[in-house]
Simulated scan of single mutants.
Amino acid sequence: MKIGLYFGTFNPIHIGHLIIANHMAEHSGLDQIWMVVTPHNPHKQKTSLLDDYHRLHMVHLTTEDYPKIKPSDIEFKLPQPNYTVNTLAHLQEKYPGHEFCLIMGEDNLNSLHKWKNHEVILQNHDIYVYPRAASGVIDPTFINHPKIHNVDAPIIELSSTFIRESIKKGKDIRPMLPNKVWAYIDHNLFYKK
């Protein structure tokens, strides 16, 4: 089985994440998409993160009606901070029958050379890249690379940061979130402060 790993803090998960995940599930040749909730991204400050299990629950709420999209807490059990290369090695060991691929935006592809052991990732795993409006010039190393697949997915310019800031300002952002996620955030008064 070919699994696309879509990593993120999902703080909170929003319709943009779901649109990309579903597009990859339906149009890229991947059998399943695992939305890997990252407890602590080495490149982000941990202070702004909602508790890991609340974010995982919101991913569950978002994906429960999509059989090809699954939430994953695999990184919760791994040493912090998480590095993708370590997560991939762990998954390959745990699920030897699966082929694991990465899903990322063009902006992340351009910073891939900064990732820990990025050469190992590129050697062993395919990367499915979706377009971003402000991605800039693609690193020439990655143009026509046999492991990198550009997917003509919709360009979604929506960020969790914008959503958090809008909630804090009392704005109505319901159209940007799956209904169950909005209800969960509203009930728990998340992101109000």
Rank of each mutant, 00 (worst) to 15 (best):
V137E: 15
D152R: 11
V129D: 02
K171Y: 12
D107C: 00
G136I: 12
I148L: 02
H90W: 08
R132K: 13
I155F: 02
T84Y: 06
F100R: 10
Y130P: 12
K147C: 08
H149F: 10
K147F: 03
P67Q: 04
P67D: 10
P96S: 05
M104K: 01
L122E: 07
L109F: 03
E106A: 14
S159G: 06
I138H: 10
K70H: 15
E157V: 10
S135Q: 13
P131Y: 14
V129H: 12
E106Y: 08
K70S: 09
D65N: 14
N117G: 01
I103T: 02
I69T: 11
Q80W: 10
R164Y: 01
S159D: 08
L78C: 10
H113P: 00
P67M: 02
N150Y: 15
P79V: 10
V129T: 14
P131H: 07
H125E: 10
K116Y: 04
L88G: 11
N108D: 01
Y130L: 11
S166L: 07
W115A: 00
T84G: 12
K77A: 11
T84D: 09
P154V: 07
T84S: 03
L112W: 02
I69L: 12
V129M: 09
N110L: 02
I163E: 06
V120T: 12
D152W: 06
L112V: 05
P81A: 03
N150W: 13
S160M: 03
N108Y: 02
D172H: 07
L78Y: 07
L91K: 09
I173N: 01
G105K: 00
F76E: 08
K114Q: 04
L122F: 08
D107R: 11
I143D: 07
R164K: 08
I103A: 04
I127A: 00
E99V: 13
I148H: 01
R132W: 10
F76V: 01
E99G: 03
I103F: 07
E64T: 08
F162D: 15
Q80R: 09
S160N: 11
R132D: 13
Y95R: 01
D152A: 14
I155C: 05
Q92L: 09
E93K: 15
N108M: 12
I138G: 09
L102H: 04
I121A: 13
F162T: 13
E165H: 05
I143S: 03
V151A: 07
W115G: 05
K77Q: 05
L112C: 04
S111A: 05
G105D: 04
I148K: 00
K169Q: 14
L78I: 00
K171R: 13
T161A: 07
N110F: 00
C101Q: 05
L91I: 10
N117D: 14
N117H: 14
K147H: 15
E64H: 15
D65H: 13
N82A: 12
D107S: 04
I148W: 03
A134C: 09
I155H: 03
K94V: 02
E75P: 04
G105S: 06
V137K: 15
I156T: 01
L91T: 12
N124E: 13
N117W: 09
N86P: 06
